[in-house]
Simulated scan of single mutants.
Amino acid sequence: MSEITLNYASPVDLDTHGHYRPGGRLGPRYPFQGRITDDGTGEFPAEPGRYHLYVAAVCPYAQRAAIVRSLKGLQEVVSLSYVDDDRDGRGWAFRERRGADPVNGFATLRQAYEATEPGFDGHVSVPVLWDRHGGRIVSNNFPDITLDLGTRFGGDPDVDLYPEELRPEIDALNTRIYEFVNTAGGKVAAATTEREYHEARRAVVDFLDELDARLADRRFLFGSAITESDVRLWPTLVRFDVADNPSARISERPLTAFPNLWAYARDLYQHPAFHENTDLTVLASTPRETEPWRVQVEPSTPDWDLPHRRAAL
Rank of each mutant, 00 (worst) to 15 (best):
M1I: 09
L6E: 13
L6H: 15
T37W: 01
G42F: 07
F44I: 07
A46V: 12
Y54D: 02
V55C: 11
A65M: 06
A65T: 12
I67E: 03
G73R: 00
L74P: 04
Q75C: 05
V83I: 06
V83M: 03
R90N: 08
E96S: 15
A107W: 04
A107T: 04
A112S: 14
D121G: 09
G122Q: 03
V124I: 15
S125E: 05
P127D: 07
G135S: 10
T146I: 15
L149C: 10
P157N: 01
P163Q: 00
E164Y: 10
I170D: 01
L173Y: 01
T175G: 12
Y178H: 13
T183L: 00
A184R: 01
T192F: 08
T193G: 03
E196D: 14
E196G: 13
F220A: 02
S224D: 15
I226M: 07
T227A: 04
D241V: 07
S247N: 10
A248G: 12
N260H: 09
Y264P: 05
A265V: 10
D267T: 14
P272R: 06
A273Y: 04
T281G: 06
L283T: 00
R288H: 12
W293H: 08
V295I: 15
Q296E: 13
P299L: 12
R310V: 08
A312T: 12
L313Y: 00
